[in-house]
Computed example of a mutant assay.
Amino acid sequence: MTEQDHSAAIAVLNDACRAEPGAGWVMTQGVWALPEADRLKAFAAVTAFSDFSEDNDPHGERDFGAFEIASAKLLWKIDYYDLDLDKGSPDPADPAVTKRILTLMLAEEY
C-alpha cells in the first residue's frame, strides 16, 4: 500500500468516526460547560465538517478540524490507539488493531 493509499484508508475510517457522535468521542470540561444547544451545534459541526485543506490536513487523513459556535472556537482531533488504549495503534489504517478517539475541545484548552 502506498503512503497515499494508506492516508486515504485512514481518512475513510476517520470520516466514519466523525459521523457517529458518541462512538469513541470524548469532550473536555470546557465543552461540557457550554449550553446544551451549543454542544448539539458543536456535534453537528464535527459530523458535517468538510473544510479540509493542505493547511489543516497536510497528510490527507481528515483527523483535525476547527470551527466556531457562539463565538467560542472549538477544535476536534482524532487519535489512534491500540485496542487496549495502552499505546498508539500499530496501523491506523487497520480497524482490527485500532481504536479511534475523537476529542472535542475548546481551543483555549489545547
Rank of each mutant, 00 (worst) to 15 (best):
H59T: 14
P90W: 05
L102R: 02
F43G: 05
A37N: 05
N56Q: 13
E3W: 04
M1N: 01
D15F: 07
H59R: 12
L102P: 03
G88K: 11
L75N: 02
S50N: 03
D84V: 11
T103Q: 11
S53D: 03
M1Y: 05
F64A: 00
R18A: 13
I101Y: 07
Y81M: 14
Q4Y: 15
V46F: 02
V26M: 12
R18I: 12
M105N: 04
E68R: 12
M27Y: 02
D82Y: 01
A48Q: 13
K41C: 05
V31D: 02
A33C: 00
L106F: 06
I78Q: 04
P21F: 11
A96H: 06
N56Y: 10
V97W: 13
S71A: 07
S53A: 09
E68V: 08
A72E: 14
D57A: 05
S71F: 13
A8H: 06
Q4S: 15
M1H: 13
K41Q: 12
L40K: 13
T2Q: 00
F43I: 00
I101V: 12
G65C: 02
A11M: 03
G22L: 07
A70C: 10
F64D: 00
V97S: 10
D84R: 14
G88I: 01
P92E: 03
Q4R: 12
F43T: 07
A16N: 05
V97F: 02
D82C: 07
F49I: 07
E108F: 08
V46D: 05
G65F: 05
Y81F: 12
H59L: 15
R62I: 02
K73T: 14
D55P: 00
